[in-house]
Design a protein around this nucleic acid. Sequence first.
DNA 1: TCAAAAGTGTTTCAGCTACACCCATGA
DNA 2: TCATGGGTGTAGCTGAAACACTTTTGA
Lengths: 256, 256
Amino acid sequence: MQEEINDKLKNYFSEGMEVFLPHVSINVVVFAYDDFKLKVFLKNIPQLKSWLLPGGHVRRDENLEEAAYRNLSLFGVNNVFIRQIKSFGDVDRVSDIVPTDYKAEFAKSEFAKWATQRFISVVYYGLVRFRDVEPTTSDFFGESTWMDVNDLEPMVMDHAEIIHETKKLLINELLTHPVAFNLLPETFTLNDFRGLYEAILDRSIDRGTFRRKMLKQGLVEKVDLRKDVLGRPAHLYRFNKKVYYKSLEQEAKFGF
Amino acid sequence: MQEEINDKLKNYFSEGMEVFLPHVSINVVVFAYDDFKLKVFLKNIPQLKSWLLPGGHVRRDENLEEAAYRNLSLFGVNNVFIRQIKSFGDVDRVSDIVPTDYKAEFAKSEFAKWATQRFISVVYYGLVRFRDVEPTTSDFFGESTWMDVNDLEPMVMDHAEIIHETKKLLINELLTHPVAFNLLPETFTLNDFRGLYEAILDRSIDRGTFRRKMLKQGLVEKVDLRKDVLGRPAHLYRFNKKVYYKSLEQEAKFGF
DNA sequence: TCAAAAGTGTTTCAGCTACACCCATGA
DNA sequence: TCATGGGTGTAGCTGAAACACTTTTGA
């Protein structure tokens, strides 16, 4: 069992040294929205207690963005909207990445050296619909899970810092570009939408004000179906792609 | 002469393969403001007709930001405010970087291969005071110059695209954080300041509105000296560092 | 008919815009 | 005293915030 995992890792890395660029990796901070909370997608590797961001190496023949998509799909994350944030490359950021149990055997091997050398990680943020991702567990890739962004368990290396910085940048993104719709299902009520913003900004937003603002933008259009829950049923809306793409290009307003 | 340059390059690269990380480079898009125009600092390398961004490789023992500062100072750019933007790493972005005249001799050498392999460039923007930088010419590093950002000569590789994208990001920066003061001399009039914003945003801004907004922020404080030019002399102002650092941390406002 | 949640109307306030007017200086 | 630019006052518009009010449904 342990043998088998070791073999898999050995293959991965020995092949990796040919196929992948050294010193360069990608990571994606994948966000989703569920139960009025903002979640991050995390994984671990077997034998390693703390958590890490999904990501991996970059093939010599693929672009950075392609590497991000490819690695995410390994963890069952598809249909994801990604945007590059920045890169993290301090000299000493690779430290505890090799699981303790492996160290004894692997410490002297070529691929352990390769994997623990200095890496510049190009970081993306990702937005997915919560229901589109099913966290899984595998011998090789370990366990994956959603975690509340405000309540993270211990993270490997500088990943906690990366999440923290990325969240700050995401907030700015959401305030200037209406990328939020990548976090919502196909159709949604305006209250769902508002709840998302409240979760991200961590404050309440007036119902009427939010409603009027969104409708005025034309960003959202009525589908005219209704929900079957308690109280007066809400209209369902979906995003207007055209208005969305247009507003993606707009620059910020003047006013510090 | 040509021999000498070749030797220098040869040393640079042969040492470089030991000292520098492969596949990772940094570039900085350095902006300055002069004559009501936004300028970019560019260089060429001898024998190469088109222009490129200042930058270079990353030492194995230095952080990315340190590499940016070190490389800039090689070109006489000091006292510069920098911030990381993002990274550019498409597979085919390194293409025409080796000067044609060198190709014949160097094509088969180790360091030519090293230098023309795929590089992920971590890009920063930089802001300096125009008067603080004196473009120079040297045999090894070539010629450097300021160029109007709206009127660029042909650039090497993807550098034109990098400048273009960086400028867009810079505009957003300037609209949300008052980093502009890094482009102005120690003291300045409010009209200088306004001119800077007009140059960057490429539109006119009402004098009164701009004035009131800046003064209200408390970002700027009167030094009470005066200019000796035609017409009524203006007050000179300088930045209030405290208010500046505070506003750097603020997040954007709600309102798409 | 009542509770629950959706949706609307309206007042208030702050801030930006535009533009006119006044002020200080040197020639 | 006039040209040149610095500095101020203000009316009007826009849009956010707050909160009360109305509507629609299921039980």
